[in-house]
Write a protein that binds this DNA or RNA. Structure first.
Lengths: 396, 396
DNA sequence: TGACTTTCTCCAGTCACAGGACAAAGGTGC
DNA sequence: GCACCTTTGTCCTGTGACTGGAGAAAGTCA
């Protein structure tokens, strides 16, 4: 099958494609209400898009009291690939042009295996999705990696937890292997874009999206666009110091947030508590599997284990302390908490909220929702699809 | 004299006005090199601007090997007023259309006297500048106030150090009194705009501008534009916690940065040191005037006083600790330090730099200049002129 | 069945703009 | 002093973008 070759020829067409992506099928008249163009001009641009095959006319809509309208929709065969490479697992999903997830696979994988091994697996997962009949091919792919990225080139830079990835031409390599356009970004930014597109952050212009997983990062959205910083490392809040001369961190400094709270730190603290017999619940689980993860802590907390709850509260306090500072600085309209540890749920959220509402200025917190992400592991892959569709649905 | 009544009719004209503002007089040909318009279209727009009187043609430039060009410049009679209302003093300046300061007055004034008294003084200062022959009237004014502002309406909101200002319609009131358009913003944002226009931050897209005066604030510039946050309180870093359960702060919390370092905190610490006889230099100065300010500490430090140097270093460390976090989060291309305490100079800067370079990630600090502002007290007033000119030099 | 609404197409006129021809005004080399 | 080149600026025409109105198509409602 031929894949998407055309691109919008001008800003109007790009605008129309995005409206159709975000609002679903629409009649010409409905589109006209949203774009401030005359009906004639709009008709011309829609016709051109129909010619390119990017959109199709399918059927008549119900009448609204007059002539029935033709439904215009994005080409139903368009498929985007969203790839979210985490520290310990990979998510791959196919979406249609409206960014609805048609199929989603998750597989464990250690990112430290290096880019070659990881991409081999990504390609296998993509092939699996294709083989299942969900897609005949991919028109574009958006990839998230757990570290800073030089965005224009799609190349990771100095990633702390990804030895072997520094400078690897991810965009170029995957674009060749997949045979479609590829965009690469930080996984946290992808999550922010996902929650913005289909989650809790719809219609919020300026917000923060804190992802707590193996590490801690923060997606920054300014005026609806992801802010990446001068060298692509914006949002790297895991190594903000929360305790002068505190715990040693893997980065070489002392007292970093990540040294106190993250998937890894939480697991370590839980194992220590189990070892010292401070928590029967955790000890039992430790004896069962020989190791503990954030999931065990969440389960223990759900079972009412005091030590587990304390661990979560302590971590939430540390995180809240940092977020409070960021709220004062950035004055967002929303804070989203997501990532692997969201399973810790409301205990975590309550601790974070307490810190932020107590420490930040009333003007900044007065009307500030702090909520859990609503998409879970799909946020990243939807964000990936969104990233590449934003790219493809912009003037060539 | 009739003041500026016309506004640019379209984006091209606005672009041309800003080019003339930032680059000074230019020929049509030179303008054409910068705007990506055909010479014919450019000529049409320039002619229209000439008709409105916003720009004038004055004289012929030297030949560059061919026909001599006509110089096009902004109307020489245009005058902008920049007003920077600080906690303890007011700066007012007149600029021409190129935002060059023609006259500048500073007078002490306690902002707690309330808006009516303050604006009476501002109007008197403006009248004085006008009487000196520098301006026959003002075409626009940009005002900075030391607290958060609801920007679109030009109204201070919940300002901590400005009782009586909450909700006062600054923009509307001053616009009536001055008889010209007025824009209002946070004083820190004005400083950032000033340094961006004429200071160290020229040609930097994303940067932070930390102002340490009576309080501590931070101007945030994203992609060349000031970022103000959801409720206008972005950059309010003075109340970020640097010490859990630390010193009581005026805001009601404990351990805020401002409780440890700001003009006020520094003066208090200095007086305490003088009182306890820990610093002969400061004691002498205290006996002379009965009180101490940041200026005294700076002088003592310059004289080699160890206690004064320690105070500055300690404050710089605290501030650097916060800035380090912001650098990790925001990944700016430049950090500017300004405000009243810049007189503390390189001792302060060195302490801040040490903290930031030590705590933030190498990727964020690798190529990050941390410098003192270059405009001093004129940054704010130039920023004010810039604010209103940006407004007036945009399509009506 | 007629009046009215909504949707969509067609067409003519207007405006924005590019690009070439040309004029004006200077420099340079012989 | 003259021919020739460069630079600047103006004029003019053709093209494409865009608007708004007329009208056709296709429906609803009384």
């Amino acid at each position: 099958m031929r894949r998407m070759t055309a691109r919008p020829a001008n800003a109007h067409q790009a605008r129309l494609l995005r409206l159709l992506r975000d609002g679903g099928p629409n009649s010409r008249a409905q589109l006209g209400d949203q774009v401030d163009l005359s009906r004639s001009k709009l008709a011309v641009e829609v016709d051109r898009l129909l010619e390119t095959g990017l959109v199709v006319a399918d059927g008549l809509a119900a009448s609204r009291g007059g002539r029935r309208s033709h439904n215009i929709r994005l080409a139903p065969a368009l498929r985007f690939l969203g790839v979210d490479i985490g520290a310990t697992s990979i998510d791959v999903a196919v979406t249609n042009a409206e960014l609805e997830v048609l199929g989603h696979i998750n597989q464990p994988m250690d990112v430290r295996e290096g880019p070659v091994a990881v991409f081999e697996q990504v390609l296998a997962m993509a092939a699996k999705l294709r083989a299942s009949g969900l897609a005949e091919g991919f028109d574009g792919a958006g990839i998230g990696v757990p570290g800073p990225v030089r965005f224009p080139e799609g190349v990771p830079v100095a990633p702390p937890i990804m030895p072997g990835w520094d400078g690897f031409p991810v965009r170029e390599a995957l674009s060749q292997d997949l045979g479609c356009p590829v965009m690469v970004d930080n996984d946290v930014n992808l999550m922010a874009m996902g929650e913005q597109h289909a989650g809790v952050a719809r219609s919020v212009g300026d917000f923060l999206c804190v992802k707590i997983g193996t590490g801690i990062g923060c997606g920054i959205v300014v005026g609806g666009d992801v802010y990446r910083g001068t060298t692509g490392s914006a949002g790297d809040i895991g190594h903000i110091q929360v305790e002068p001369d505190g715990r040693a961190c893997a980065c070489g400094n002392k007292g970093c947030l990540e040294a106190y709270f993250s998937g890894a730190a939480l697991a370590r603290d839980a194992e220590e508590a189990a070892h010292h017999g401070r928590s029967p619940e955790l000890s039992t689980r430790f004896e069962g599997s020989g190791r503990l993860t954030a999931v065990d802590v969440a389960a223990a907390a759900a079972a009412g284990d005091a030590t587990a709850l304390d661990l979560i509260r302590a971590g939430g306090n540390r995180t809240g302390q940092v977020i409070a500072g960021l709220v004062s600085f950035f004055n967002p309209g929303l804070v989203v908490i997501g990532g692997g540890v969201t399973g810790l749920g409301h205990t975590l959220l309550a601790a974070i909220r307490t810190q932020v509402y107590r420490q930040s200025l009333p003007l900044a917190t007065g009307n500030l929702p702090i909520v859990l992400g609503e998409l879970g592991p799909t946020a990243g892959v939807i964000g990936g699809a969104r990233l590449i569709s934003d790219h493809l649905f912009s003037p060539a």
